[in-house]
């Protein structure tokens, strides 16, 4: 068990594993997207309060979930690199950050598109929206640090510390924002994510969430492959790999 884990923590084996897995992940997620979209857009009934606008949920909620999951992945990668000195952690953290940032932005924008017809305004300083916005800035800080430090390894190590500091701070930020938003406003008008949801709406949501998740994993693996190639430029196995791909295309 540990032997296999250890094997795939080495960049070379992880690269091969990632290459084998990505087509499957892309394929399955695209099929799930198809099913989820048909179910969510055609088969699920319109919400009795929100009408057809509730269908934004199938984009908004999966991307909001992913925005948090990606930070966990990033901080987990950072912890792997900091605590156990596993180089793969750096690769994963750097691969996850831009994905996390883009899904956070998507969640915010689709949230605004949903908020406008529901609340009559693009933005409310509701605890969840505000926390999501701050999450975006945490991602942007990580990305800015990565681009400011030229040496890739040094940047990844500094980023690992930042990601771990961030994950400790996220609950603190979230709960202080919750406290702040309940203090200054009367009970917020949150219609989103009502506790009970009809099964006919929930199942497509879960399918879409699963599709997003798999697509994210596929993207993560592709980006990790790029990072590995850059990190390991000088490694012998990369040179062998390049030679092989070169010959297969017949450019020599």
């Amino acid at each position: 068990m540990f032997k296999t884990l250890h094997k795939y923590a080495s960049p070379m084996h992880f690269f091969a594993l990632a290459r084998a897995l990505t087509p499957w992940l892309f394929g399955i997620s695209l099929v799930l997207f198809g099913v989820g979209l048909v179910w969510g857009l055609f088969l699920a009934p319109a919400d009795y309060q929100q009408g057809e606008s509730f269908r934004i949920i199938y984009v908004h909620v999966p991307s909001a979930w992913l925005s948090m999951f990606a930070y966990l992945v990033m901080a987990g990668g950072g912890a792997l690199s900091l605590v156990w000195k596993i180089k793969l952690g750096d690769v994963i953290a750097r691969a996850a950050a831009p994905l996390g940032a883009s899904f956070t932005a998507l969640a915010l924008v689709t949230g605004a598109l949903w908020g406008k017809p529901m609340w009559g305004t693009w933005w409310v300083w509701d605890a969840r929206l505000t926390s999501e916005l701050l999450l975006l800035f945490l991602y942007l800080g990580y990305l800015a640090l990565q681009s400011a430090i030229e040496d890739r390894r040094a940047a990844a190590r500094a980023g690992a510390v930042l990601a771990v500091v961030g994950i400790v701070n996220i609950p603190i930020i979230h709960y202080s924002v919750v406290w702040w938003s309940t203090l200054h406003q009367p009970a917020t008008i949150t219609k989103m994510g009502a506790p009970t949801m009809a099964t006919s709406m929930l199942i497509p949501l879960l399918i879409m969430a699963f599709a997003f998740q798999l697509f994210f994993l596929a993207l993560l693996l592709v980006r990790a492959r790029c990072e590995i190639l850059e990190f390991e430029q000088r490694a012998q196995w990369v040179k062998t790999l390049l030679g092989a791909s070169d010959q297969s295309r017949g450019t020599r």
Partner: peptide
């Protein structure tokens, strides 16, 4: 984290201000 990094105050603000919010 930013010791010896060019980019200075702006990078610092981006890193630190979200953490100061609580």
């Amino acid at each position: 984290l930013t010791v010896g990094v060019r980019g200075g105050a702006l990078l610092m603000a981006l890193l630190i201000l979200p953490l100061y919010i609580p």
